[in-house]
């Protein structure tokens, strides 16, 4: 009697173990969902031209630009301007200068992030090189454009936004 009881209890516990293993993978979509709902994820913030947004000339937001290359991407990557003051609602342009140092064509993609994190959702991109994969031929250089505005809804306590790009290598290099 008791021996089969043992197996029954053990089976229930094994189901619990399997459930928790599945839960770990369920965390992936769950996490992305939470990040999207709360606007925490450094999402690409695609936006059209500002509609119904007057330029708020009473405020100025300092936008800082930063460009990093992931260690396994043989590129140079730098913004043309380090910082820019804009009024909320005002459309501005910045170029990033990119050079491929390798002897072959390499494809990469830039991943953005905005600091402070809760300011991320107010940084609107109309056009950005980070929306697409970028392919550079051997030793090719390019100017990559970014066109953006800062939403007029940006809270009063945010006066600086720092936009940081990390250019990632999309070719599978292995470690």
């Amino acid at each position: 009697m008791a021996a089969s009881d043992n197996k029954k209890t053990a089976k229930k516990l094994f189901v619990l173990v399997a459930g928790m293993f599945v839960f770990a993978f369920a965390m992936v979509p769950l996490y992305n969902l939470v990040c999207e709902v709360t606007g925490l994820k450094g999402s690409d913030n695609r936006a059209g031209l500002p509609i119904n947004q007057d330029i708020d000339t009473t405020r100025k937001i300092l936008v800082e630009f930063d460009g990093i290359v992931n260690s396994n991407l043989p590129w140079e990557f730098e913004p043309s301007t380090r910082q820019l003051e804009v009024h909320p609602g005002e459309v501005a342009n910045v170029n990033y200068f990119v050079t491929n140092l390798a002897d072959k064509a390499v494809t990469g993609q830039a991943i953005p992030s905005v600091i402070p994190w809760f300011g991320s959702q107010y940084f609107k991109k109309i056009a950005c090189f980070c929306f697409d994969k970028q392919k550079l031929e051997a030793h090719e250089s390019a100017d990559m454009p970014l066109r953006f505005y800062v939403s007029t809804e940006i809270p009063k306590d945010i006066s600086t936004l720092r936009l940081s790009y990390t250019f990632m290598n999309l070719e599978k290099t292995g470690s």
Binding site: L13, L16, V17, A18, G19, M20, F21, V22, F23, A24, F25, M27, V28
Partner: peptide
């Protein structure tokens, strides 16, 4: 242990 170890196993599997 039953509740947490499978999650770690899932994480390192990823």
């Amino acid at each position: 242990l039953i509740l947490i170890l499978p999650v770690l196993a899932g994480g390192v599997t990823m």
